[in-house]
Design a protein around this nucleic acid. Sequence first.
DNA 1: GCAAATAATTCAATCGTTGAACAAATAGCG
DNA 2: CGCTATTTGTTCAACGATTGAATTATTTGC
Lengths: 412, 412
Amino acid sequence: MSPTHAPAGAARQGSLRELNLALVLGRIAAADRPPSRADLATATGLTRATVSAVVEDLLAGQLVSEADPAPRAGAGRPARGLVLADHGPAGLGLEVNVDYLAVCVVDLAGQVRHRTVHRADLRPVDPADALARLVELAGRARADADRQGLTLAGAALAVPGLVDDAGLVRLAPNLGWRDVAVPALLAEHPALTEQVPGVPALMVDNEANLAALGELHSRPPGPASFLHISGEVGIGAGIVLDGALFRGVRGWSGEIGHLPVHPQGRPCRCGGRGCLEQYAGQEAIVAAAGLARAELPADTATVRLAELAEAGDDAALRALRDAGTALGVAVAGVVNLLDLDTVVLGGGYAPLAPWLCPPVLTEIAARVLTAAWSPVTVRPSTLGAEAAVVGAAGSVVRRIVARPGGWLARCG
Amino acid sequence: MSPTHAPAGAARQGSLRELNLALVLGRIAAADRPPSRADLATATGLTRATVSAVVEDLLAGQLVSEADPAPRAGAGRPARGLVLADHGPAGLGLEVNVDYLAVCVVDLAGQVRHRTVHRADLRPVDPADALARLVELAGRARADADRQGLTLAGAALAVPGLVDDAGLVRLAPNLGWRDVAVPALLAEHPALTEQVPGVPALMVDNEANLAALGELHSRPPGPASFLHISGEVGIGAGIVLDGALFRGVRGWSGEIGHLPVHPQGRPCRCGGRGCLEQYAGQEAIVAAAGLARAELPADTATVRLAELAEAGDDAALRALRDAGTALGVAVAGVVNLLDLDTVVLGGGYAPLAPWLCPPVLTEIAARVLTAAWSPVTVRPSTLGAEAAVVGAAGSVVRRIVARPGGWLARCG
DNA sequence: GCAAATAATTCAATCGTTGAACAAATAGCG
DNA sequence: CGCTATTTGTTCAACGATTGAATTATTTGC
């Protein structure tokens, strides 16, 4: 968390260098223009001598490279700009969702260097088969990455469900998965299990969490704390606090879909009554708009809904307004509780944002105690449907940027 | 937050020692028996030589002292146990509340070494007057601390309202305060403004936040993540995530009292409808139980309510059950969102916990998606009404334990 | 009384940062 | 064209902190 607390381990000599590697690399990543060594020295408070030594390590490890000297006015020896390497380590992002498989590769700078989306209804498919198909796509992505001079340093898999620390998918209701041991199933595929010391070969995480991370690291940089809501069949939220994803005690945070908005209302499949999902979930909106939901795959339903709303269809507009109001009630509660100033509507909500935002803002204005002093921003996701895969791949490279020691120990 | 992110500043030589000072001191604080230098070496991973050097610094700065050798079986030179000093720096805790002023002193080990509670109705009192009275109590506390060989290293003030970063009390509705610049008003009183480098002389914070911190550091140590709910006239929550208080973007988190539990229900003074406060706030419970609330000060009302419930009074029991159900709906939402496994009922809720817990647990069981896999504990606060002052004083000493460098630089 | 065992300290070696001096490379100016 | 001012980046002795081994201190068990 943020959180200023003592470190876990002992601070030995080497930790010092590791901290400064992270500090300098982080500055290079955050800068909007390639900084020189001298810039980094003044920005970080380190000596130019130390910065030179640190940068030498980073160059040797292929984490940064020297760019063309940035033009500068005035006299003096020209600076050599430093940028994140476009040929160093990269992250592999994977996603299994209800109606598609996706794979992408993201480099250190956060650029998407490869992407594949394979549309298919995954519900009737056995988990092992689904993962086998995904591994095939991943193999092609790896080949493409190699061709571009990138080395995959790890992989992360996004799943629409509850995942525990060991990567076991406890429950993915809309996918029909229960207790699927993803790491064990993927262990047979060497394409994914190439080891980097200190970096787990594969991380499995909730789709909403990774989408929030994708949003966090998208350019231009947004706020460090926000709520990212993915409106799919279920409604998941990723909670980003002080630049870090909050995962909860067991990693199951973000189940905003089961916040009660009408405590005595419609029964929900979770066993409660009046959960948000029953009023603002995709199926609920589609049904309220009078569309036959069985006919349509999930992702085209929202597009169709947006078309109808655009055309001024009364039922669609009413359905969206009601869903937005329910969403607003829930979001207002969250904002009161966590004091966030930004809410991002992602996933299936992104294309519907023009109609959802107004009622959400109305509820916030009415219910949030501090709304009068400082406004709450509600905006659609910038990454859209790709947020989760991109966030998954990005989480791999972000871990390297945040702690480069592990990577350098391997590729020194 | 926990959060593994890079440090803010440059890691120079001295930071290394500072980190290890914090590491060793933290171990001494967390140990249940006085550890020897050798114990600390194995526990932290540092060399015995380093631990000796670090401990020497801590001894010189009066942060730890050597205890009687703990009896040990077997041969060998006896160890010298290390404990947190009972004569070093201490924290001053202050509280202004609706019907009392409180002051306490807490030493490094977390022991309360002085306490004063002054009962008075503070609502009609001018903020400056109230603070002046508090300063008088603080002066006596300081004298008492001096007599015990303690040096006050900072102070923290708990207020039942919204506080911003600068210590300005934006709004304390039940106290009738609005835009009260506490630090400016207290600056005239030198008893509180003795400076320690790196430690702000006075911190002002929300009462619910500090109560949660008090609970976090109470012995025996509880979980690192939990929700602490203070049920007073308003309902405030302190959110502790991974051992750190989560304050929100502007420091105004925890307004659980305005979570909507009946979106179209009773209007609330916040402008919304159906807020939790209208169903589980102290005034709401007292009214539902048929007590004339105007007759009773806030704190005796809950005691009276507990007596009635104990005696089997129907109206009181019904009022508590309904309040517990409303509270449970809100708490279930929070648990779904944040994935917490512990909820602490504090403040005015503590004595009512026997009647509130069952309906809260019922709602959690019905509404929390993951309740089937891992249970949620709901329990009363161990500190009771003193949690906020003790937490305030504790926050001062905790900051020293977490970063001893500042204190040692002063008292080397 | 002596050996074994455990605790704590001492000391040369090592590693990373520091600060200043030095080399490199350019713009401006006469 | 040559000189100076200016800024960048590197080199090097010094310093501070940790390390690991050797040493001293103190007790139990035989």
